[in-house]
Design a protein around this nucleic acid. Structure first.
Lengths: 349, 349
DNA sequence: CTGAAAGCGCTTACAG
DNA sequence: CTGAAAGCGCTTACAG
């Protein structure tokens, strides 16, 4: 009978053969001479099955090239082994490193993830979340702490564990892994003050919540040092190297006395540096430059750019770790994990 | 009865409520006073359903906040609406742009994708493919044309459509979207020759098939011009800006007469440029530099780097498009789509 | 155009 | 430790 059925699969299929040639748990069970449940257990909880059974199942799995159907697993168990990840942009290598951290933690736990790229749009974010929900994600990792209230509610309704990344959540019970963007900006201000700069400026693009917090902290540090006049060139456009050059141009045009520049991220800083080179402005002599994130080129370029080293990989890894713990129902003592940051002082400021 | 059942869902659940509070197609059907099948049709093929029905279903969907369960859909239909994408590395922005192209084409077609990052390891690639298969992907997009034979066979067995990206497949029947890596390398060689350089060198990392083809083409162009001596510094290490600096150092140390350098990608080129600046080598006067891919910083840096513009976004978009056509069973006339490339001649060479 | 029945390939919850 | 039954939430394939 077993053989009968097996050959009929290969030969002319009597029933519809939707999953072409794909072995099912039933096929494995028949080949191993056990029940489907035993196959299921042997695969998921080997210790609940005798070694003999386990071996027979293993042999059958091998022979048939059995690969479990995750859709069936998901439907039956209401667990998808899928984690949703929401990041603003794939083209920002900051988030790519975070993704790598997430993957490294998740993959050993047998989870995969689907990425949603919001492009900094709350609308798109809502939409992406809805897609993620339809895939029955078991957990969610979101960049930032500002989640659409509707979305937050539906996540709560469906009991989907959630961890925020890149910023510290103030909300009671919320889980977050990141660092204080405001304090990071503040330290950049302190750094420039301590180096004797007295007319600092800021250039920023995107103007997402985290960038604005950095700027806020930066201005606070200057204010604490008695400096209230801060040259600024802000735009909601996405940041890029090219934008850095443009903003630098506009800022020094409007504020020729500006002696130091906080660029809200490294792309802007690199673009500003190149533009200085084109204009014959010496860095840091004529203008000091500080970036943010410490991407690889910051230390490589000439002069090397002073920046802020942020724990991007670690944020992803720890956020994934925290999420898994929450999903396992563990009690979590530290709900907001501050991974800190560091000023990398180099030649440019 | 309908109301009865609805309230029992909200109140004390009699049965196990696995999918917490989540409305099913049955709930929608009851609320709309139609059969589940009509709901299914109204959602998937609205034109098969009368406008009246459609409206009733729409209202019920809205009211209940119904989101389809894709696991159930996948299991029942044997179609997952999931596409597997295999790329070597997320930290290479080349592939990020490709991903963006893929997403732009796939999202309008209602498909999502899962990414597998091979880190240039065939073993990892095999493993990732197996994971993708267990998610029942409907199609696959792979970087490169060299697929593990075992994997290729199992894809064929399961009739999973496949499109190669970034290189032209020679295999009969295979679908690919890209450009000729060899010819691109050749044109770089031609460019340097035409500019009068006579002692060109190459630096390369990773040494993946596509890099090696570029190098091969480059050397062919030099050979055609009567130059057979080519200084080379190759390493299997992953490429990076830092590596570019190191390789530059080693190459000019060993071959001080080298007058032009083909860097197998822009990261290497930028690192080489920075290292030249540190060493006081004037680019291009003392050493010309050519990169590959034309990433944003190539045109921004000082001097701007001559590079090769590659259609990365378009490759992703077109590959996804081709895959969808294949999945729809359309007949495909052009199986290998060559999107070409362009030399972006700038200041550095 | 609409619906009742059966099934997709697993796991849950219960027996033994 | 092992298994038979029922069900997860959809869609396929038929009827009408």
């Amino acid at each position: 009978m077993a053989a009968e059925r097996t050959t009929s699969r290969k030969g002319s299929p009597k029933k519809r053969t939707r999953a072409l040639g794909r072995a099912t748990i039933g096929d494995v069970a028949r080949a191993a001479g056990v029940s489907p449940m035993t196959v299921s257990r042997a695969l998921k909880s080997p210790n609940l099955v005798t070694p003999t059974m386990r071996a027979r199942v293993a042999r059958a799995v091998e022979k048939l090239g059995y690969v479990p159907n995750l859709a069936a697993q998901t439907l039956a168990s209401a667990r998808s082994s899928l984690i949703g990840v929401i990041i603003p942009s794939l083209s920002n290598s900051v988030f790519i490193e975070t993704l790598t951290g997430i993957r490294d933690r998740l993959s050993v736990a047998g989870y995969q993830f689907i990425i949603g790229e919001t492009l900094y749009s709350p609308d798109l974010e809502r939409q992406l979340l809805s897609t993620h929900l339809s895939r029955a994600i078991d957990g969610l990792l979101v960049t930032g702490v500002d989640l659409d209230p509707d979305v937050a509610r539906s996540l709560k309704n469906r009991r989907i564990p959630l961890v925020h990344m890149f910023d510290m959540s103030e909300e009671a019970g919320a889980l977050s892994v990141g660092f204080s963007q405001t304090r990071a900006g503040y330290e950049v201000g302190r750094h420039l003050i301590s180096r004797g700069y007295r007319s600092p400026g800021v250039i920023a693009g995107q103007l997402d919540p985290r960038s604005l917090k950095r700027r806020h902290g930066f201005r606070a540090a200057l204010a604490d040092a008695g400096i209230s006049q801060v040259a600024e060139m802000l735009t909601p456009q996405p940041t890029s190297i090219a934008l850095g050059g443009q903003l630098l141009g506009r800022l020094v045009g409007a504020h020729p006395d500006c002696d130091a520049l906080f660029c809200i991220n490294d792309d802007l800083a690199l673009g500003a540096l190149f533009e200085c080179q084109r204009r014959g402005l010496r860095v840091p002599h004529d203008l000091a430059i500080v970036g943010f994130n410490d991407l690889p080129y910051a230390r490589a370029c000439v002069p090397a750019i002073t920046s802020v080293t942020t724990p991007r990989y670690e944020i992803g890894f720890q956020a994934a770790h925290l999420l898994l713990r929450r999903m396992n129902g563990e009690t979590i003592e530290r709900r907001a994990i501050d991974l800190g940051f560091q000023i990398a002082a180099r030649e440019s400021a």
